[in-house]
Design a protein around this nucleic acid. Structure first.
Lengths: 348, 348
DNA sequence: CTGAAAGCGCTAACAC
DNA sequence: GTGTTAGCGCTTTCAG
């Protein structure tokens, strides 16, 4: 069967001695085909190694069973985990994925991205790029009135838009509640970049938790990092200066927390006795820091999974290009993982 | 321009008062169109917000400008980095990406994957799944005579097949050379899972380096891990038992090396004085381990980039479905990154 | 320079 | 049950 090209439905029809329509009925599992005919066609199909063209089908059915996924920062573990959740959920639902990665998080010119996706007739889009600075400005713009559903990840819930995010504020509150419970009272914060929505949510949680416990959350108690370990190292040095009697620090991600632990060790401080540390993310390494890191676990692959389900829901509910049927803003609750870096009470 | 559907070339033609071919000529930037006609059509196109359908084009041209990417283990950082390289290189070359992720590394039934990709008319395939156990058996099988080029990543070079990989053996040799140079003589090894080709390459390097330096590489000096930090912890304990006078350890990845450092610290051993440690990968955290980890940097995104370039090369060189024009096996050299965990000579 | 006809691979709608 | 006709949105002949 070494044809030079993939066989078409026409060839199958010819070999089986039927019309293309009948072949079409067989491959689409329609009932109205005589058993013998069906059998004969099935045999021909497998002999020829025939495979229907999803492309031709998409054209005629105006439905591609393909989702567009736009991501950014794939070299970091967070976005990859989300993508992981997207791929497995899409596979399960029988959808293919067209993947685009933005060169930068703050890519402003999103039109070509949408065009590329739309020209390939995707049925829906998952915008898996974190909300940073002005990179959501275009969402409101009328210019972009898509005829297909779109679900946004990791962004501030908005009217008439579907979003799926980890509840970062809740995560921050959980971490802070734990530190306070351990008896820490002078808790500093190392934040992510303040143009990230997720970072701001965590800062807000830190502030609110302190205020509600009647502790001060002064500006100098919070230093901004950029998620990288290196920035965490710089931030903690600054914090040691600005907040000398700090007894714990809530760090906005585990990578920065790692640098905090390292810096504290080098200073001869003991963790958790002299300094309590809590992170955010629960990367696989956190359990093996020295000491192991208390952190907030966020299941990013679940975000991806839910996003796929929502998108497909919207698609299959026969969306009409108006406001989404019921634009949902889904927030997923993260979880506290307690490890040694914050467990002062055991030692006291 | 709020049409209920995307406009077609026909509508543009009608509005502009020309035939569809003329519109086609304009969007394909053919020269033979009168300037005024072209101008008028261009205006109509932008007024209507017209966007040619890549699907219809793919059908007729038998060319989709789409690459199929098959990956696995996206929740780990390695595969994601490779994918990152793939997305940016594909974008640059003007190709789209159809992404599939295998549910498991050792997925045996790859036929449906290929079918899904082929039915969507991808022009080429990048198989970005590491070679593990028998998961490459099907490569030789005649049953799979694809009519499109395919490039395999992270696998043992083979006749008549194009592969792109990091030179893991070389990486191992570089790490070992460094440790030996530092005066370590009783060097143990914690390997990755032995069914991984990459793990075996690193083991071979460890063995050869010791042998060539006239040191013993006994079996008990090498313990198998599974890449996870936890497995590294178990492995190092075993190694402490089986090889009590070990003075250094070459660990097959950084995550396991992290657990090694932690275990050594807990035992009160000093690194690098009592135990030299070298890892593999150079994850962002390695520089912030305590002590910072000497490791082998592999630029996985470059693997992805090169793979895309090779695939497109094969596509555009008008491949005929026979053996690849010149199946290349590309190996990329990794690099040594020296940090404190192996720097005994400075302290001596 | 421009248009008409044919067809990529498939399916919807209707006939018989 | 099965075949015929038409057409998804586009490009490739080939006329003129």
């Amino acid at each position: 069967m070494n044809l030079n090209k993939r066989p078409t439905i026409k060839q199958v029809a010819k070999v089986a001695g039927v019309s293309t329509q009948t072949v079409s009925r067989v491959i689409n599992e329609r009932p109205d085909v005589a058993p013998e005919t069906r059998e004969r066609i099935l045999v021909t199909i497998s002999e020829l190694g025939y495979q229907p063209s999803a492309l031709a089908r998409s054209l005629i059915q105006q439905r591609s069973y393909t989702l567009g996924v736009v991501t950014a920062g794939l070299k970091h573990i967070g976005p990859s985990r989300t993508l992981n959740g997207i791929t497995s959920a899409a596979e399960e639902a029988g959808y293919s994925l067209l993947l685009k990665e933005l060169p930068r998080y703050d890519t402003e010119d999103v039109v070509p991205i949408f065009q590329a996706l739309l020209s390939r007739h995707v049925d829906g889009i998952i915008w898996a790029v974190p909300e940073i600075g002005e990179n959501r400005n275009w969402v409101d713009k009328q210019s972009l009135d898509l005829k297909i559903p779109i679900v946004y990840l990791a962004m501030e819930p908005k009217q008439n838009i579907s979003t799926v995010s980890i509840d970062n504020y809740l995560g921050g509150r959980i971490a802070m509640a734990h530190l306070l419970e351990q008896g820490y009272q002078r808790i500093g914060h190392i934040s992510g970049p303040m143009d990230w929505w997720e970072a701001r949510q965590r800062v807000a949680a830190w502030k609110d938790a302190l205020n509600e416990a009647n502790f001060e959350a002064r500006d100098v108690y919070c230093v901004e990092g950029n998620w990288s370990p290196a920035s965490g190292g710089l931030a903690i040095e600054k914090l040691f200066e600005q907040y000398p009697d700090m007894d714990a620090v809530f760090v906005a991600n585990d990578q920065m927390a790692l640098a905090v632990i390292q810096a504290a060790c080098q200073k001869g401080m003991r963790i958790p006795e002299d300094l309590g540390v809590a992170g955010f993310d629960n990367i696989p390494e956190s359990a093996f820091f020295y000491p192991p890191l208390t952190t907030i676990q966020q299941d990013q692959h679940v975000v991806g999974k839910v996003a796929v389900e929502e998108t497909i829901n919207m698609i299959e509910s026969g969306w009409e290009g108006l406001a989404p049927p019921e634009p949902k803003s889904i927030k997923l609750a993260p979880m506290l993982v307690v490890r040694q870096s914050s467990l002062r009470s055991l030692k006291a």
